[in-house]
Structures are given as C-alpha cells and as structure tokens.
Design a protein around this nucleic acid. Structure first.
Ligand SMILES: [Mn+2]
Ligand SMILES: [Mn+2]
Ligand SMILES: [Zn+2]
Ligand SMILES: [Zn+2]
Lengths: 135, 135
DNA sequence: TTCTAGTTTATAATTATTCTAAAGTGAAAA
DNA sequence: TTTTCACTTTAGAATAATTATAAACTAGAA
C-alpha cells in the first residue's frame, strides 16, 4: 500500500490525513503481513522508528478512529491490554500465551461441521476460533 | 453442591474455609447452571443477598484463589472487565454484545472438521469457539 | 487455651484508558 | 494567497479496574 493509497484510505473514511495519522497509517498498513499490536507496543515501535514524537493520546485517538472506520479490528486476548489487528477480514487466531503472540489463521483453514443454533430471537453474527498454544 | 462439599472443595485445594470464602463459594457453586460474572457483578449480588459485607479486596482475592485452584475459569470477553466462569470444563460460548451475556455451549455441540497444525515447536493446548450474536 | 500462618480489610498505588480544554492545522472559501 | 474554522493534537487531569500494603483478625494445630 503506497502513500497515495494511504491518503485515499484516510480521506475516503472522513479522516483528515494529518501528519500523525499518515505516519501511523503507513506504519500499520504498508506491510505484507497482518500486524497485531497494543497501543503500548505501537507507541514504542513508533517512538523507535520515527524522529517526530506522537503523543500517546493521539495514538489512542488514531487507533480508535481507524477502528471505527473499519481499518482495524479489536481482538480479544486474555489480559489487561486491548489488542488490535490490521487484518479486518473474518479470520481466526493461534494464541501463544508464553509470548503473548497472535498468529492469523485464514477463515478457510478452519471448517466447523456442527454448530448449535442461536438462542431465542438471536442470530449468529460471526464465529471466532481461538487456538491456544503450548510448548 | 452442599455445604460439606463446599468445605471439602476448599480444604482439598489448600484454602481455609473462612466465613467469606464459604459464603462466596456457596453463592458461586451451589447452583444448577453455569454462572458467568465479573468481580463487580459478583460484588453487587453478594451485597444484595447477604447481610455481612465482604470487602471488595476479599472478593478479588477469593476469585483469584478459586481460579488458581481450578474452580473458576477466566473467559475472554471484549471490554475492560474480566469475566469468570463456574464451568471449568472445556466448552464454548455464545456472546451477546447487546446484553454482555455469555451462554455456554457444550464441547460436543461444536465439531471442528478441519484445523491447521500448530506452528514450529508448538502444540495445541485447547480450542475455544466464540459465537457472537446479533438481533 | 495459646500461638501463628494464613486471611481479611481499608486504603493507597498502579495501570490502561478516556476526558479536557488549550494550542495547532488542513483545506475550503474568499 | 490569505483567511477562517471545524477538526486535530497534545499535556495533563480524571476515571476505572485491579493489585499492593500493612495492620487487625482468625482457623485450627498444638
Ligand atoms: Mn483482553
Ligand atoms: Mn476482556
Ligand atoms: Zn489477526
Ligand atoms: Zn462458560
């Protein structure tokens, strides 16, 4: 994903491409593989990588703006911190609690044969599979 | 589960059956169906039910002690609070984000036909399925 | 009954996150 | 190009969940 696409991505979701947003978006979206992160880890990586310091509040603001725009997903991981995922398509995860590392599993790599029907007036929105790992 | 069993349950896991622990254990374990809760919700319910007030710190201590002893499981739910589950067997969940309600799914009610193999030197510890509900 | 390690408790501390409100800025309009 | 202003960034305060502290209490062994 090139810079022009980043600008389009931001503008088309009603987000002004400010210096900070572009820098964060480039860091998050200009990569081949999925990136899983917490605000803390993102902050550290950005601080290390870049010269210009971005306020922590801005990172929170930006991550939430990207999530609301559908460019990031929140992943539920045991623990206190909130995890985000640059892979916004429907998929599953391996989770290694030793390293707190998430690994993507393509939706097609898990096939569920039998599933219970949703209760009362409810419908199934989506199904998430977590595979916890050990050594 | 009767009172004597509660006492055994505590003692056999190295926990002194104090007044507070017995009261909390009775509240949590003397019921037919699985109970999912947060420390906050448990605290409210205990306050309503009982005459003797239990300190919030004691509820945290006790829930952690029960979890460590294997009498409670922690369930990962989106949001800030930590959820606990009296069902410590391997099972799955429906999750209704409208009501923040968890509903158990028996392990046998979900059959996974295809699953990827664990990465590098890792093994699969367990598989958890979350079915998110909508109206 | 005495004794003590384990437990409870009020309160302080910590940690992740959100709020606030003042200063800064992208970009539309003049 | 300059003006203008709604949107954005920011430092710091506030909040909320959880954990730590340390003094008072107690289960139960001796
Ligand atoms: Mn979490
Ligand atoms: Mn959670
Ligand atoms: Zn992912
Ligand atoms: Zn459950």
């Amino acid at each position: 994903m090139k810079k022009i696409d980043i600008l389009n991505k931001l503008r088309s979701s009603g987000l002004r491409p400010t210096k900070q947003r572009v820098e964060i978006a480039k860091f998050l979206f200009e990569r081949e593989k999925t990136f899983h992160f917490t605000v803390e880890s993102l902050n550290k990586l950005l601080t290390k990588k870049s010269t210009s310091k971005i306020a922590l509040a801005t990172i929170y603001n930006t991550v939430h703006a990207f999530k609301t725009a559908g460019h990031l997903n929140e992943v539920e991981v045991r623990g206190n911190k909130t995890y985000f995922d640059t892979n916004v398509s429907n998929h599953h995860h391996f989770y290694d609690s030793e390293t707190s590392e998430l690994i993507d599993i393509d939706a097609n790599d898990i096939i569920i044969q039998k599933i219970p029907k949703a209760p009362n007036g409810k419908k199934i929105k989506n199904v998430e599979v977590f595979i916890n790992l050990k050594n």
